[in-house]
């Protein structure tokens, strides 16, 4: 029998976990060093690099823009995604599997290709504004998350609950708002969070949709890294990790640890 306390298994697992965790901890440490370039182990202790993060206009503007785009794209994905999931799971739609594939299709196209195609097809050919195209790109990134998570919880939810609401006098819309939504609340929140984080972190889609006044945080860091090798990047890495941790904590507080594990 292969037990969880099998020595070989424990040893490999410990090494792999170390491989996963140690680099992140190391980055955190390098953010506090006084050397002008990144060094590990560090010498001295300073918070200067954190201050320097906020002194970079690209980072500050990029953070704001990333936040706005991530929020807007996630909401848009929910507004368009939830109705279509409802249609696919509660109506007898022909070619249901075909529609499912259609709405998950953004995941089959490499993200870099989506960014490139949007730039070529929408910005250059149709002269769509860059900002709008960026939002569209991030919406495409988000939609599959909504479709997948919300479909799963709609399928799990007992259909008879809605039927009961109709029997007791709710219209279809009212039943959806007062009965269905509260019952799939957890998946809506999880989908939103997942959309938000992935949009916020995304690089390949944003890459082509950069402009002089339009920079996202990850691409701004990428550009900074091309020219500099100082602990400012470590500092912003720490801030981004705190950001991720805060997001996870939010989900955990709101929906419990179980929701986190299902994300």
């Amino acid at each position: 029998m292969l037990k969880a306390n099998n020595k070989v298994l424990v040893t490999i697992s410990a090494i792999v976990l170390f491989f996963l965790i140690a680099p992140l901890i190391m980055v955190i440490i390098t953010a506090f060093g006084t050397d002008a370039t990144i060094a590990f182990p560090i010498h001295g202790f300073t918070l200067h690099w954190f201050a320097n993060v906020f002194a970079q206009p690209d980072f500050v503007a990029g953070f704001k823009m990333s936040l706005i785009i991530a929020l807007a794209a996630s909401l848009l994905a929910l507004v368009i995604g939830v109705p279509l999931v409802y249609a696919l799971t509660r109506y007898n739609v022909h070619h249901q599997a075909w529609f499912q594939t259609l709405f998950l299709s953004p995941t089959f196209i490499p993200e870099i290709v989506i960014g490139f195609a949007l730039y070529q097809g929408l910005v250059i050919t149709v002269q769509l504004p860059l900002l709008l195209t960026l939002l569209i790109g991030h919406f495409l990134l988000c939609l599959p998350y909504v479709v997948r998570l919300v479909t799963a919880s709609m399928v799990l939810m007992d259909e008879h609950i809605e039927e009961a609401a109709w029997v007791y006098g709710s219209s279809r819309l009212k039943a959806f708002l007062t009965v269905t939504i509260p019952n799939i609340r957890a998946s809506l929140v999880a989908a939103f969070m997942l959309c938000f984080i992935n949009s916020f972190n995304n690089i390949p889609i944003s890459l082509f949709l950069n402009g002089p006044d339009l920079s996202m945080l990850p691409t701004a860091i990428l550009n900074y890294l091309q020219n500099n090798y100082d602990p400012t990047v470590s500092a912003i890495s720490v801030l981004l990790m705190l950001f991720t941790a805060a997001m996870m904590l939010l989900v955990e507080k709101g929906l419990g640890l179980k929701a986190l594990n299902e994300m």
Binding site: L24, V27, N201, P218, Y229
Partner: peptide
């Protein structure tokens, strides 16, 4: 599971940056 999830949700630039340092 949270420890495994954390890197997935952390920015790819950060995760690649760690290997530049290493």
């Amino acid at each position: 599971s949270v420890v495994i999830l954390f890197p997935i949700l952390t920015n790819a630039v950060v995760r690649n940056f760690t290997w530049i340092i290493i």
